[in-house]
């Protein structure tokens, strides 16, 4: 077993884990933060995307022990209480989700996208940047709209990632 400490959504957490524990398992099973999902085994689908030290990573392809000392933000840490992050609000407003399973990863990827690429995102850029996130429900049409609108809203509220 290995000891691991990190800051998750602004709170310090520690755990004693088998080294083979993935970050996503640590979040879901140890911390019961079940908003981060697992949709594949090959690092393709992106349902597990969280931010580690401000950058989007696939938590199914990251060891928990590798995140010792890191700042982690999950979908649960994005809203400020009941006040949604602009990207979350945009997904609701533009019907960017159906079953909701890929949604946490989509939103975390979208926020990271805006942090890196700015708030004026054209459709082509958004579609390319979503390469690592698979959705089976929406056909992406409304996700693309939601990301574009969410990016604009993030700019107008001056918001980057919450809770960092």
């Amino acid at each position: 077993m290995a000891s691991v400490s990190m800051t998750v959504n602004g709170k310090s957490v520690t755990g004693n884990v088998d080294p083979r524990t993935l970050l996503v398992q640590f979040l879901r099973e140890n911390l019961r933060l079940t908003g981060t999902h697992v949709g594949c085994d090959t690092s393709q689908c992106g349902a597990c995307v969280v931010h580690v030290d401000g950058r989007a990573v696939k938590s199914c392809t990251t060891l928990a022990v590798s995140c010792d000392g890191a700042h982690v933000t999950t979908i649960e840490g994005l809203a400020n209480g009941t006040e949604l992050h602009p990207m979350q609000a945009a997904f609701r407003e533009h019907h960017g989700l159906q079953c909701g399973f890929c949604t946490p990863g989509m939103i975390m990827t979208a926020v990271d996208m805006v942090n890196r690429k700015g708030s004026n995102l054209d459709e082509h850029t958004i579609r390319e940047e979503l390469e690592g996130n698979i959705c089976r429900c929406t056909g992406y049409h409304n996700i693309v709209k939601a990301v574009a609108a969410g990016a604009q809203a993030m700019a107008s509220t001056g918001q980057k990632v919450a809770a960092e």
């Binding site: 995307v49 989007a56 696939k58 392809t61 990827t109 990271d112 390469e131 996130n133």
Partner: peptide, 8 residues
């Protein structure tokens, strides 16, 4: 890869 892969 994709953006998340490129971050690690």
């Amino acid at each position: 890869g994709d953006p998340a892969v490129r971050n690690r």
